[in-house]
Design a binder for these strands. Structure first.
Lengths: 110, 110
DNA sequence: TTTATTTATTGCAATATTACAATTAAATGA
DNA sequence: TCATTTAATTGTAATATTGCAATAAATAAA
């Protein structure tokens, strides 16, 4: 008990939940926004940009990387992170479909 | 420690995270999909539809209601739930904007 | 080699989430 | 009124998440 019962849901439902979950923390939203805004790779300045300790940022980056939404390449002593544009569309498509449904088509009867 | 430091993020970042977080569980994805699919109000059959116990479903419904994404009206001994179409667009706009950014505009340098 | 620099990992404490049994609450029908 | 139905609440156990100090690892520069 206490653990999400993924086995009773469809693969698609689990995938949507997975991407939504990783976006479901303001630090990770901030990281994604920053990576998109700078439109290029960012190394350690995420720690300065966001006001969290370096290990905490590192942990959030790891989660984003595990889902596949960002990637990082080592460049000297620093690591260069950026949006994984190859995966982005496929990862977000299910969530996009869910939230962009046309509310006008819905007769909310209550 | 252990608690999300919402105060260091912008209101928008917290809002995006909040809606993403509530979608970040397959049971709540399933509930939303079912409410959208049936295109009308749903009462207690969510417990049958999804394979979780009644208190668990009730708890997930409460979280969705707290965020404002669904609403419920009492109808006899049962409760009629549906998507809150008035709130939907505003609640999801930030998340929609974030995930629908054009990857072609991004020069992922790593 | 030694010293910075930068990031990852480990370990831990505090808190949050998930799930369900048991119970309560509220409304309907007999 | 009393039983039935349906959903919410309470309490609890298991697990996950968040955050950071301390440390380790890896590379670059002196």
């Amino acid at each position: 008990m206490g653990v999400t019962r993924t086995e009773i849901f469809t693969e698609k439902q689990n995938e949507i939940a997975k991407i939504a979950k990783v976006i479901g923390h303001p630090a990770r939203v901030a990281i994604l926004q920053y990576l998109i805004k700078t439109n290029s790779c960012v190394c350690g300045d995420l720690v300065d940009e966001i006001g969290l300790a370096q290990p905490t940022i590192s942990q959030h980056l790891k989660e984003l990387k595990n889902v596949g939404v960002i990637k990082g390449t080592i460049s000297g002593t620093s690591v260069c992170y950026c949006i994984d544009t190859e995966n982005w569309n496929e990862l977000t498509s299910g969530l996009l479909e869910l939230i962009s449904f046309n509310v006008a088509d819905n007769n909310s009867c209550c």
